[in-house]
Computed example of a mutant assay.
Amino acid sequence: MHAFAKAEQEIKNKGIIKPSLTEKATEISSYLDEKMDFNLGERSLRDYRSAAQKLEHDAGDIRIKQVDVITGLCHYLGYENYQDFVNRNDTLEVDGPIIIESTVVKSAVEKLPKKSILRNYRFYILIGVMCILLFWLYNYTTRQRWMVWKEDRYTEVDFDAKKYDIKQLKLYKEDRILSFRKIKVTCLTDFFHPDGSVLVWYGKNGDKQLEYFTDLGLHPETGKTLKPISGYMIDTHICVE
């Protein structure tokens, strides 16, 4: 078997004159584990070799069901895949029959290019995905409309994390821009519609001071829900003698 012949030569190059069968199988197993990311024990490799030797003078093949085993052995011998091995050899029987399973060769050849590309270029694929995500994020943050609270109203602004605190930036809402205001109130303020519905909402700012607004929603600084004005609040906090 070609792989064992190459393993023998590799081990001899390291100074071992007569490497054992187990040492050869271990050499191949180590390559498959390190380079191909799958584990095939030296015992299995020796079993394949024994089966190949028994068929040395027959026309048949031993059967290997795992595509990765076929690919790994071809790579170890310096071939891209099994098809490359076939194309570059005049005969398939040197030192014993080639270890394949005829029923999987076609599917193996079809699948190998994709698996090889994913192994060799998965880093670049990951970089590509990250670039796409960053591009999408950039477009989303720059195309999305934003607003910030300034004194007594929301104002539309461009997304600028350096100019504004990220907590200040809020997604643009037209009704907030047009109708939400902080106002000063007195006893003469219209607090209710003629039908009795509320015109004014209130809440405390960060300094625990009451502030009044023209619409329901959240306090623009504290984020707490504003409350509708009531007669009790008017009498105890606004119209105080």
Rank of each mutant, 00 (worst) to 15 (best):
G217D: 09
L210R: 03
R119V: 08
R88Q: 12
K204Q: 12
P194E: 08
F85V: 03
D33Y: 14
T214C: 01
L218Q: 07
E156N: 07
A51R: 15
R43Y: 03
N39W: 12
Y212K: 04
L199I: 09
T155D: 13
C74M: 14
Y172E: 04
Y232T: 13
K227A: 00
T91D: 01
S179I: 09
T26S: 10
I166L: 12
M1S: 09
D160E: 08
V185K: 14
L216W: 11
Y154A: 05
L112D: 07
P113Q: 09
T222M: 02
A3I: 15
I234D: 02
K163D: 11
T225D: 02
E10G: 00
I132P: 00
D175V: 07
R122K: 15
Q66R: 14
A52L: 10
A51H: 11
V198L: 00
W136C: 15
I70H: 02
G128P: 00
A108I: 00
P19K: 14
W146S: 06
M233I: 11
V94L: 03
Q83D: 07
V109K: 02
K150I: 12
L210P: 01
K204A: 15
D235N: 14
F191L: 05
S30R: 15
Q209R: 14
T91Q: 10
Q83E: 06
K173N: 07
D215F: 06
F4L: 09
